[in-house]
Amino acid sequence: MLPATARLTRSEDFRSVTRRGRRAGGSRIVVHALAEEVQTSASPRVGFVVSRAVGNSVVRHRVVRRLRHVVRDRLGTLPAGSSLIVRALPSAAEASSAELRQDFDAALRRLRLRANNDGGES
């Protein structure tokens, strides 16, 4: 579970990140990121989008749980004040946690969002 301060929940925030932020993605996920200079003391915030195209309710919730776990382990590597949206694509339904982790790390590298390079496992 992500701490409450690390969750992106308001629809206005989701809209702002997807419209004004940069994005990088692969075959299973797309990451939208917006770095706010104003909130440099705030912790990074993350939201998830998993549409019905990914699968039924059970599959969607499994994908969200896996993505949440991946993001939780990397929350400390994200810049303070940044906002991320992780959008699952239909192929995420068959992906393992390791594959989702690789896709998320690759997206972060493309976005150059790592605050430090101690990411550990890749």
Rank of each mutant, 00 (worst) to 15 (best):
L8A: 03
L8H: 01
L8R: 00
L8Y: 00
L8V: 04
T9D: 11
R10C: 09
R10H: 04
R10G: 06
S11E: 12
S11Q: 07
S11A: 15
S11H: 06
S11M: 13
S11Y: 04
E12A: 12
E12H: 10
E12D: 15
D13I: 03
D13E: 14
D13A: 05
D13G: 03
D13N: 08
D13K: 00
D13S: 13
F14T: 00
F14S: 00
R15S: 07
R15W: 01
R15H: 07
S16A: 05
S16P: 01
S16W: 03
V17R: 01
V17D: 02
T18C: 09
T18A: 11
T18D: 04
T18G: 09
R19G: 02
R19E: 14
R19K: 15
R19N: 08
R19H: 08
R20D: 05
R20K: 07
R20L: 05
G21N: 09
G21S: 13
G21E: 14
R22I: 03
R22S: 08
R23T: 12
R23Y: 07
R23F: 14
R23I: 05
A24M: 15
A24W: 10
A24G: 09
A24Y: 11
G25T: 04
G25F: 03
G25Q: 04
G25S: 03
G26A: 11
G26W: 03
G26I: 12
S27D: 10
S27W: 02
S27M: 13
R28Q: 08
R28A: 06
R28T: 14
R28N: 06
R28F: 00
I29A: 14
I29Y: 02
I29Q: 03
I29G: 12
I29C: 03
V30I: 11
V30F: 02
V30A: 09
V31K: 01
V31H: 02
H32R: 11
H32N: 05
H32I: 06
A33Q: 02
A33R: 01
A33M: 04
A33F: 00
A35C: 15
A35I: 15
A35N: 05
A35V: 12
E36F: 10
E36P: 06
E36N: 10
E36Q: 08
E36D: 13
E37G: 09
E37T: 07
E37C: 10
E37I: 06
E37V: 11
V38M: 11
V38E: 13
V38D: 11
V38S: 14
V38H: 12
Q39W: 07
Q39G: 14
Q39Y: 14
T40M: 15
T40R: 15
T40L: 08
T40S: 11
T40C: 15
T40H: 12
S41A: 11
S41V: 13
S41L: 14
A42D: 12
A42G: 12
A42L: 14
A42P: 13
S43R: 01
S43W: 01
P44R: 04
P44T: 11
P44L: 07
R45Q: 14
R45N: 00
R45A: 03
R45F: 00
R45G: 02
R45M: 06
